[in-house]
Amino acid sequence: MIVAEQKPIEEIVQSIKPYKKLLIAACGTCVTVCMTGGEKEAIELCTLLELVSELEGIQIRVKTIERQCDREFFVDFEEDIEWADAVLSMGCGVGVQFFAELYPGKHIVPALNTKFFGVTRDVGYWTEFCQGCGECLLEKTGGVCPVARCSKSLFNGPCGGSSDGRCEINPDIECAWQIIYDRLKAQNRLDLLLETLPPRDWSSSRDGGPRSLRKSSVYLEVD
């Protein structure tokens, strides 16, 4: 899922201050799971904003758009969007942009800082797993991603700073290469690591410019 966290309240207040009618749009997908931008958090944020003296007199509606990255989920909210001077979107960066693209005349304000693609490790604890590099090599690394999970995105084993399973940059970070090693050793597949992986073609990643994807079996060119 996409993991995000709420922006500092002062920053949100500064962006919505000019407006009298605000729609807070929660998103029912990833950000609900990571407890940042779902209905519950939207209601809490609304309560908080109503207490801010700088925003006195503001009217706020809270709605949940199940998926802000998908056009069809917006249809039930036309009236609310029309009503509002501005929308505080609690979707991820994708949701905010898509919202803004669908309603180009409306000021859509982001409520979250979008962080990474990750998993829930523990209650209230998420870690990064993937960077969407465009050419997945998990098959070669025991299902552990060196691009996203090694601080230096190393492809051929750990740097000299790996110590007791921890990364040199911070003892709170696990060394991805220790995990790769442990996993492959347990599976008796360490020989995989004898191969030297050549320089990556990063053009499949963001380095090749913004990416798009068309699936020919379903994509119909409309002219």
Partner: peptide
Amino acid sequence: TTTNPFADPRELQIIRLKKKIEA
């Protein structure tokens, strides 16, 4: 190049040294 005899995981660090030599 460099190598760290005290870094972890030791077995993998040696594999890495071998790869550096091959390279």
